[in-house]
Computed example of a mutant assay.
Amino acid sequence: MLISAELSQFSREFVVCVRPVSGRRYEFIGAFRGDGMCAPRGLLLCCGASMLNGQQTKLIAEIAEKIRGKILSGGFPPGERLKQERLAEEFGVSRTPIREALSRLEAQGLVSQQQRRSAVVCAPSARDISEIYRIRAELEGLAAGLAAKWIPDAGLARLRASHERFLAKVRDTAAPARGRGGGRTARRTALLKLDAEFHSAIVAASNNRNLERLLQDLRSGAVGAAVSAAAAAMDSSRLEVQARQHQCVLEALERRDGDAARAAVSEHILDAGEYILAWVENQSGS
Rank of each mutant, 00 (worst) to 15 (best):
M1D: 13
L2P: 12
E6G: 06
E6W: 13
S8C: 05
Q9L: 09
V15T: 15
V15E: 15
V16S: 02
C17Y: 12
S22P: 00
F28S: 09
I29Q: 14
G30W: 05
R33F: 15
R33S: 13
D35R: 02
D35Q: 08
G36P: 09
M37Q: 14
A39V: 01
P40N: 13
R41N: 10
L45P: 01
L45R: 14
C47W: 09
A49P: 04
A49N: 12
A49V: 09
S50P: 03
G54T: 07
G54I: 07
I60Y: 09
E62Y: 05
I63H: 12
I67H: 08
L72N: 11
G74Q: 11
E80Y: 06
R81A: 15
R81W: 04
L87N: 07
L87A: 05
A88K: 11
I98K: 03
E100V: 06
A101R: 10
G109R: 04
R117K: 15
R117P: 09
S118A: 15
A119R: 03
V120Y: 00
P124I: 01
S130G: 07
I135L: 15
R136A: 09
G141I: 12
L142I: 00
A144F: 10
A148E: 00
D153T: 11
A154R: 02
A157G: 03
L159G: 14
R160Y: 06
E164Y: 11
A174D: 12
R178N: 09
A186G: 00
R187P: 03
R188T: 01
R188Y: 09
T189G: 04
F198E: 09
I202D: 05
A205F: 08
S206T: 08
N210A: 05
L215T: 10
L215M: 13
Q216W: 07
V223I: 01
A225S: 05
A226E: 13
A232W: 01
D235S: 03
S237N: 14
R238Q: 02
Q247W: 08
L250R: 11
E251N: 14
A252F: 11
R255H: 12
G258L: 06
G258F: 06
D259Q: 10
A260M: 12
D271K: 10
A272N: 12
L277W: 03
A278M: 04
V280I: 02
